[in-house]
Design a protein around this nucleic acid. Structure first.
Length: 857
DNA sequence: GAAAAGGTGCTTTTT
DNA sequence: GCACCTTTTC
């Protein structure tokens, strides 16, 4: 397959698809004067404070809006977009607004539409990734790539890295693949290509990484696939390699707005620069815009962000983009929004105090005119179950006693795994709740299996997907058979899929069963492809996959209750695909109408719009399938949608919570080792990011904030104890009402005494002195008995339990097999085994090491 | 080759 | 405590 940038000549202008059509008249004067004050423009400025107003009205030079949490930055962005149309004389097709999540994009689009009506349809509001996909598809012909390319998520990437590593005879443990994939991702975020990575590699690890990276990119190209980082990196490469293409987009987008700018990584930063045009202070350096026609002034750039809310450094985001904005764009202006319209003063005081713990930040202090509000409520549970119980009780109390509805409440935690304890209680007490994120729908095995079929059908080169489904459901094509095909493909230097087609050539090397299975697998795929070419829609195709592969039959035949829910998931997948297909058609129509409307005079609008909408809707089966698969890859949060749905408590990680707000927020697991996370404790930079995460969490709350922790918490199946989070120390005492406050004691490793500290007043004797807040001076509320900071102390493990001592004839009860009689005992100590007759469950030989789920009766 | 038992290592966070 | 991987057994 041709490499992306092999094409030597600059593509001729005019080859772009309809979606990138330039607005009539080409570039417009950049600093167009406002049309003066009209009723419409006045209305758009109404209700804004002076800073917000300045940001909305600002024209010309690049603008950085430093906005604190809850200061109405989304409002400013949407108003600005509307204002550009109403008072700035901007053309809707000239506006590009980039957000980080699809949800944010959808919301902004909706709000702008509320303000300016149908004109909003021609505005590009998009995430970085969706935008890049659209650009790459439009320019596919120039790049020597197919428009049917597949998008690999991180799991697919890891699989591919694993395949490359095994090609190179490297250790292919999962951890290795994960580390390599992360290293490659970092390189891509820094816009470093494999050749450069190899040049710069000094350590052995870097050399290996560069080698795998090169093989990985080759495999991606061969599979006609892009990973998430690729989407950005290759788009940047495209704009840099083809000045005419870059200029085309610069002419088109005269207003570029970026939300959540603090979360951009280097590649995204460069992409913005390329789209905006203009020059850099250190021209020629990395990120310098190339080939800008002298007569084309840079687009108007407005970025909005809050360095204190940067929580994605782990995926390459760099605050430098926001802190150095004025250096990057020397004529830039900065506007600060500090007034908060979301939270009470108590909550803001806590947020300010916590974030103040970070040095090296631009001082910023949120304030509100709303008054202090309720105190923050604190609670220390004996363990995570007690913590969860308190949360459940408190929510019920709020709903019963106040105007609060379940939908007003959110519970945040640091890691997805932490949701379990809370869920347990909620399920048991019948609390209505929903989890956002976590084990995502699209990450479930059965869903990925079916999607892999669809991808393999849509993109014949997609080796990762093809090999995933080759023996799913099991049809007798085992590792040996697959390996033979791989070897044959290497010998003949043909793609895996082609080797599979020529299975007859290696028939002698295969078991008859494998051979037959491969032949019928080929037929299966052919059949599915013809379904697509006959114009079948993606949902029908998914149904056909379920029927023809026997996937559905296998699940239906199973009596495992998990398989029943798998079936439900698959049904839901088919439904989602049907909806997506409809949305795709609707979106095409809307875009086409928008384009038509934007480029036509009023009289022509109706006819033209209708005509192009009809054209756009004429998607063939292949386009439809590609489009739907793309949606599913990019819109991974389709099952998110908290939308403050009536009557449902929302559970999510702190990262997912960004950009949202709730009247009532529970911040859980405030323990050193949990939040801040153990992995961050040793590293000042990571600790600073954890602190920002705490700041994000606190500032989600509008009226009431709860902070909770647990003295003991089980993780990895073992109980342990964590000191209180250092973030709690920073919260001023006068804004917190501690409902229950107990001290930690050094963890005691005794099976019968896990919970060795108790609250005063619990009615039981306490091994240590504990205190309620209020019994002491606030400053010393944790006294000097606080255990030293550091990783959690751990209790004894399974292995420390004594082995089970059995003799022939003993009766036992096993958790899984039930009652049994010992028949034979072999070996001594940890090597001892027993052969036990479990009656109808069979006769089984078991090891007797400690922790075996069996007791002697 | 499939099924099942045993072993291993895991937990950041996500577009 | 769990999911996933490896080994064992039929």
């Amino acid at each position: 397959m041709t490499n992306l940038f092999d094409i030597p000549a600059d593509p001729a202008a005019g080859g772009h698809s309809g979606l990138s059509a330039a607005p009539p008249g080409g570039a417009r004067p950049n600093q167009s004067e406002p049309h003066g004050r009209t009723a419409e423009s006045e209305a758009l400025l109404a209700g804004l404070n002076p800073q917000q107003r300045a940001a909305v009205e600002h024209r010309g030079a690049p603008l950085l809006v430093v906005a604190g949490a809850g200061s109405g930055k989304t409002r400013v962005l949407t108003r600005r977009v509307a204002y550009l149309l109403a008072a700035g004389g901007a053309h809707p097709g000239e506006i590009l607004a980039i957000t980080f999540t699809n949800k944010a994009a959808a919301e902004m689009k909706e709000r702008v539409a509320d303000l300016v009506g149908g004109r909003a349809r021609a505005i590009w509001v998009s995430t970085f990734h969706s935008m890049c996909v659209r650009i790459l598809r439009s320019e596919a012909a120039h790049l020597g790539i197919k428009t049917t390319f597949t998008i690999y998520d991180s799991a697919d990437s890891m699989r591919l890295v694993g395949m490359v590593a095994s090609d190179l005879d490297l250790d292919t443990k999962r951890n290795t693949a994960r580390a390599l994939a992360a290293a490659i991702s970092n390189l891509k975020n820094e816009l470093i290509d494999p050749a450069t990575a190899a040049e710069r590699a000094e350590t052995d690890i870097q050399k290996v990484t560069a080698e795998v990276y090169a093989g990985y990119q080759a495999r991606l190209r061969a599979a006609a696939a892009f990973d998430f980082d690729d989407l950005i990196m290759q788009t940047v490469g495209l704009l840099q390699a083809f000045p005419a293409v870059a200029e085309h987009y610069r002419r088109r987008f005269r207003h570029v707005l970026v939300d959540e700018y603090q979360d951009t990584n280097h590649a995204q930063y460069t992409l913005v620069r390329e789209l905006v045009g203009g020059t850099t202070p250190d021209a020629g350096g990395p990120g310098a815009a190339v080939g800008v026609a002298a007569h084309l002034p840079p687009a108007e750039l407005v970025v909005v962000g809050d360095a204190d809310q940067s929580i994605y450094a782990f995926r390459g985001a760099t605050i430098r983009n926001i802190t150095e904005f004025e250096r990057d764009y020397p004529d830039a202006r900065t506007i600060m929004l500090e007034q908060n319209y979301r939270s009470t003063q108590n909550i803001l005081s806590a947020a300010n105090a916590v974030i103040a713990g970070n040095t090296d930040r631009r001082a910023k202090s949120l304030w509100t005119s709303e008054g202090s509000g309720e105190k923050i409520v604190g609670y220390v549970g004996d363990n995570e179950h007690d913590e969860a119980r308190f949360i459940g009780q408190e929510i019920d109390k709020l709903v019963d006693d106040t105007a609060c509805r379940y939908g007003d409440v959110a519970v945040f935690y640091r890691t997805n795994a932490a949701s379990r304890a809370i869920e347990d209680i909620f399920v048991r007490t019948g609390m209505p709740y929903r989890i956002v994120g976590g084990v995502r729908f699209y990450e479930r095995k059965e869903v990925k299996d079916v999607l892999a079929y669809l991808r393999a059908v849509a993109n014949p080169d997609d080796e990762v997907s093809l090999r995933r489904v080759l023996n799913t459901p099991r049809r007798g094509i085992g590792d040996r058979a697959e390996a033979q095909v791989v070897i044959f493909a290497e010998q003949e230097r043909i793609p895996f899929a082609d080797a599979l087609r020529r299975v007859d050539d290696i028939a002698p090397l295969l078991a008859t069963r494998s051979l037959n299975s491969i032949v019928s697998f080929n037929r299966l795929i052919d059949g599915l492809r013809s379904l697509v070419s006959d114009g079948g829609d993606p949902a029908d195709l998914a149904t056909a996959v379920l029927d023809r592969t026997g996937y559905r039959a296998e699940l239906e035949a199973s009596d495992d209750p998990q398989d029943a829910s798998r079936l439900e998931n698959l049904e839901q997948l088919v439904t989602v695909m049907r909806e997506q297909a409809e949305m795709l058609i609707a979106a095409r129509q809307a875009a086409a109408e928008g384009e038509a409307e934007a480029s036509a005079t009023d009289e022509e609008v109706g006819a033209l719009a209708a005509e192009s909408a009809l054209l756009a809707a004429q998607l063939d089966g292949q386009q439809m399938l590609t489009g739907v698969l793309e949606q599913l890859s990019l819109v991974a949060d389709a099952d998110a949608v908290p939308d403050s749905e009536e009557g449902v408590v929302t559970l999510m990680t702190l990262h997912t919570a960004k950009g949202l707000e709730f009247p009532v927020v529970f911040l859980t697991g405030l323990e050193d080792g949990i939040f801040p996370h153990m992995r961050a404790l040793g590293d000042a930079k990571e600790l600073a990011e954890e602190r920002r995460l705490a700041y994000v969490g606190i500032t989600r709350a509008r009226k009431r904030l709860y902070v909770t922790r647990a003295v003991t918490r089980s993780s990895w199946g073992q109980p342990g104890s964590n000191p209180p989070s250092r973030f709690l120390d920073d919260v001023p005492d006068e804004v917190v009402d501690w409902r229950r406050l107990i001290e930690n004691v050094p963890f005691v490793d005794r099976d019968d005494d896990f919970f060795s500290s108790r609250a005063i007043g619990s009615g039981r004797s306490s091994p240590v002195s504990a205190s309620r807040f209020g019994d002491r001076t606030p400053q010393s509320r944790f006294g000097d008995k606080m255990p030293p900071r550091g990783p959690a102390t751990r209790g004894g493990g399974v292995g420390s339990k004594p082995p089970l001592e059995l003799r022939k004839g003993d009766k036992v009860s096993h958790d899984k097999y039930g009652l049994g009689t010992v028949k034979i005992v072999d070996g001594v100590g940890v090597r001892a085994t027993a052969t036990i007759d479990f009656g109808s469950a069979g006769t089984i030989r078991l090891m007797l090491i400690g922790g075996v789920p069996m007791v002697k009766l």
